[in-house]
Amino acid sequence: MPVNDASLLATVDARTKLAGSNKMEILLFSLGTRETFGINVFKVREVSQTPAITKTPNMPFGVEGVLSLRGNIIPVISLAKFLKGEQVASKYETMIVTEFNKSTQAFLVDSVDRIIRVDWDKVRAPENMMMSNSPAAQQNLITAITELDDGKLVSILDVEQILASVVGEARLPDVPQAQLEQHQYMFFVDDSVVARKEITGVLEKMGVKFQQATNGREAWERLQVLASRNWGEEGNLHDNLKIILVDAEMPEMDGYVLTRLIKSDQRFNGIPVIMHSSLSSNANRAMGSSVGVDAYVAKFDPAVLAETLIPFLQR
């Protein structure tokens, strides 16, 4: 069904019902090619016709300019131009306004199709499918893919990486050092390349050892191995694994289901689970609380992430 304001708002209002259901809702759109793209509805603020864009000098490639939206000045990014790495002649009259990583921006697209609901376990990492002909895949800008009932593939864009590429990566500030024993570490999981790089940078600067995974299912499998390990003289799981840091939206298993599994397994009792997500609204925080997260940190503020981790690491 075509997307309209009513259907989009109804979907957004129903977000909390998806918490822990291992399902996601995707807004499908086109860039004027045969490829179908998608973005998590949780990141979508609205869809509208593109108003007048103000051209500004010295903007990064792919940024068409800025516009005023309800009193706020936001950047307008041409996804087609950014993905193809070249000038695009077509004028895109539809824009998707997104809100994540504490920022608001508009993405120009050719057309918006509809909203679909899929199980996270039907959303796969891109390396599991043949996507080499896609310009987005060639730039590693696809975070996941799924398949429609008619067999057509949907490429879910890593909009966090796109935004980081456009605005640049923030310089890591000074962060507090963690006073841990040699054998102690933390575990984190995130499907975004840029997010894993940023988290790694913070942990290394804090002097924290870590293990990592790229999706919820992989994380759960690795955590099961750790929980089943015979620790011997090293104590127990709780003495070694200090924190589990999870993303909210991930292929194959989302962070809400992963958190619920961890919290229902007595072997992880006392090990805090912190949710680190680009979805920073009160509704998303409430969703995290509903499955038992011990803290919620919005991406990406290195200082806030470090400040959140320190008290849990020092326990």
Rank of each mutant, 00 (worst) to 15 (best):
E127M: 02
M59T: 15
K81V: 02
R70L: 08
R70M: 06
A136D: 11
V154H: 10
V63Y: 02
L69Q: 08
N128F: 07
E93L: 10
P57L: 10
S155C: 03
Q87H: 10
K122G: 03
E64N: 13
V118R: 13
A144V: 09
F61Y: 08
A125I: 07
S134N: 13
E93G: 03
I74D: 03
N58P: 00
V63Q: 11
E93F: 03
D113C: 00
V118W: 01
S132H: 09
M59D: 02
L153Y: 09
E127T: 04
N133R: 08
L67F: 14
D150I: 09
V66D: 01
T98E: 09
I73W: 04
L67T: 11
I142S: 05
L141K: 04
I145M: 10
V123Y: 04
P60L: 06
R70S: 12
L157E: 04
K81P: 02
E64T: 13
G71Q: 09
N128I: 03
K122V: 00
V112H: 05
N72C: 00
S78V: 05
N101A: 13
T104R: 11
Y92A: 12
L67Q: 08
A80T: 05
Q105R: 15
E127N: 09
E99G: 02
E93N: 14
V112L: 07
T146R: 08
E147A: 03
N128T: 15
F107K: 01
V97L: 10
N133P: 00
K81S: 14
G85P: 11
E93R: 06
S132E: 12
R114G: 00
F82S: 07
A106M: 11
D121W: 06
S111C: 01
V88G: 03
I115H: 05
E64I: 09
F61L: 08
F100T: 11
T143C: 09
W120A: 12
V63D: 00
N72Y: 00
S103V: 14
N133I: 02
K81C: 07
Q87G: 07
G151E: 11
N140R: 14
D110A: 15
K84G: 05
K81H: 08
V154T: 06
S134Q: 06
K152N: 14
P60T: 07
S78E: 05
E86M: 13
S111Q: 11
G65C: 04
V112I: 04
L69T: 00
K81F: 01
I96S: 03
E147W: 02
L108E: 10
I145G: 03
